[in-house]
């Protein structure tokens, strides 16, 4: 009897703006969040177009011009301990620093969200076993875990990435698990089960749309942490190796000049600080924009 309705042509219907359109329009009206977003965008552009922006070669040092203070002629932000242009190195540094901030989080997001969603949706003993294993990783402070892992794997960018990814999988998995667990028991998921759909289809159509937002926002808040941890690893000589420009590493190599040029030494730290604040404020803005009653 319902089939008879099928030949009716699909008439145009009124459509409400979707969830993400609403989130975007709320986000746009939050000046702090938009400002933070612009700073992040600027940092990304700076990293991508570093060769075009940087006034000098970041690797070329001049033994005669070491540790010049900011404002020196031709070196607006001074020179480092090997006489390389600070400004150019800071600009180039954005490349590795952002890369080390974002990549481990993205990798961990893929792995952690999968683990968490599967554990959360499965529930029962599957959940218990998976989450207890995750808890083991929680027993270590993240800094220690990262240092221990890269220490074991050896210095280098790839090993740094691996150890940071491992560090971020447990927290993301745990958030994903708790969000999924709360969604799993909602009536609409029950209704989907009652309509005969299998678990994969339910996760894809009913669960993902409701859990990915919060998980993504949480992951984004880890970008700043990842960047700082990566800088920390470089500082300890475990992540990026000299002479690559990376803010954490620059902070490390400049620390001997702390009493000679304190302002100069502070510059890489300032960049780390600025970037992580921008990411955090962007995350906060997104979170509140996504906090719809709906």
């Amino acid at each position: 009897m319902l089939q008879t309705a099928a030949p009716v042509a699909l008439v145009p219907i009124e459509r409400s703006p979707g969830y993400w359109a609403t989130v975007w329009s709320r986000f746009r009206r939050d000046p702090v969040a938009v400002g933070a977003g612009l700073v992040v965008l600027a940092l990304i552009l700076m990293a991508v177009f570093a060769p075009l922006i940087a006034p000098q070669d970041p690797f070329k040092g001049m033994a005669l011009r070491r540790l010049r203070p900011p404002g020196t002629d031709g070196y607006p932000l001074g020179t480092d301990e090997l006489g390389r242009d600070m400004l150019s190195r800071l600009i180039y540094g954005a490349r590795l620093s952002l890369f080390m901030g974002v990549t481990p989080v993205l990798l961990a997001l893929g792995a952690g969200a999968t683990i968490g969603i599967v554990a959360g949706y499965a529930g029962g003993w599957v959940n218990t076993i998976m989450m207890r294993i995750i808890d083991v990783f929680f027993a270590f402070p993240s800094v220690l875990l990262a240092i221990a892992l890269s220490g074991a794997l050896g210095a280098g960018i790839a090993n740094g990435l691996i150890s940071l990814t491992v560090v971020f999988i447990p927290p993301i998995a745990r958030i994903a698990e708790s969000v999924t667990t709360s969604v799993r028991t909602r009536d609409y998921v029950e209704a989907a089960r009652a309509s005969g759909a299998g678990p994969l289809r339910i996760i894809r159509t009913q669960v993902l749309g409701n859990v990915m937002g919060p998980i993504f926002v949480y992951a984004m808040s880890l970008v700043a942490v990842s960047m700082i941890l990566a800088s920390g690893l470089s500082f300890l000589g475990l992540g990026v190796k000299p002479p690559e420009p990376e803010w954490g590493l620059m902070l490390n190599t400049l620390r001997t000049a702390m009493y000679i040029q304190p302002l100069l030494c502070a510059l890489p730290g300032l960049m780390i600080f600025l970037t992580s604040i921008a990411f955090n404020m962007l995350t906060d803005g997104l979170r509140s924009a996504m906090d719809l009653k709906a």
Partner: peptide, 28 residues
Amino acid sequence: QMVFQDSYASLNPRLTVEDSIAFAPTVH
């Protein structure tokens, strides 16, 4: 089939009304 008490909790907030209704037939 079943209709639940809480009319709000039993609809996926991210799906439009027609998508929610159309879900079960596509399963079959």
